[in-house]
Structures are given as C-alpha cells and as structure tokens.
C-alpha cells in the first residue's frame, strides 16, 4: 500500500532527518486491511533509526505525539484501529521536543 508519512517537531531526527517518506507498506499476513497499529509496527522496524522510545510507548505513540491521518487528528478516526487506504497521508508531530 502506497502511503506518505511525515515526521515533524523533532521526530524526523529519529529517521535520518528526513521529514517526508513515500513508502510502500505490505499488508500484514492473512489480512486485507492495514490499521494504524500495523503501520506503527512497520515504522518502528523500517524507519526509526535511533531512540525509538521518543516515538513509541507500549503499543502506541508516546503521549505528546500528534497523529494526523489525512489532516485529521487520529482521535477522530479510531486511533490504533484506524484503517488506512491507498495514498493516505499520515503525519506524526512531536510536541515534546524540538522547536
């Protein structure tokens, strides 16, 4: 699935200082949908190069990290359960550091 991922507010420092990543994410085995939960795991494994604890806490993002799916706060779309679609844009912004 083609997605655009954007990291801001300092989070880009965890992925080689690149803010915008055009990525192709495979659907999880035996599944025909991709959720934010799956995406976070994928990001943790494939994009985060250092200090993952700045991004992830438990199975979700660290408190203080904003997540927007197509410019909309993921709180409105079901957070981890949000299902992603082809060409979606997901933005992660840390409010904890950077500036």
């Amino acid at each position: 699935m083609q997605l655009t991922l954007e990291f801001g507010g300092g989070l880009e420092l965890l992925c080689d200082s690149v803010k915008i990543h055009k990525v192709n994410v495979d659907l999880p085995d035996e599944s025909h949908i991709l959720t934010m939960k799956d995406l976070l795991k994928w990001v943790r494994t494939n994009l985060i190069k250092e200090r993952p604890e700045m991004f992830i806490k438990g199975d979700t993002v660290r408190p203080g990290v904003l997540v927007l799916v197509n410019d909309c706060d993921w709180e409105l779309s079901g957070q981890l359960e949000t299902t992603l679609e082809e060409k979606d844009v997901v933005v992660f912004i840390s409010t904890l550091h950077g500036g």
Binding site: G9, T95, L96
Partner: peptide, 22 residues
Amino acid sequence: ECIYSPNAYRGFAREFIKDLER
C-alpha cells in the same frame, strides 16, 4: 491551547501531564 506546539522537553513533568491528558 496549543495542540501543535514543539517545545523544549522539560523532562518527567511533561510526560506526566501528557499521560494524564490521555
């Protein structure tokens, strides 16, 4: 009421209040 505000990280107190907020 800034929900998009990068800021200098001031340690534990910040993470604590963000946990409370959740």
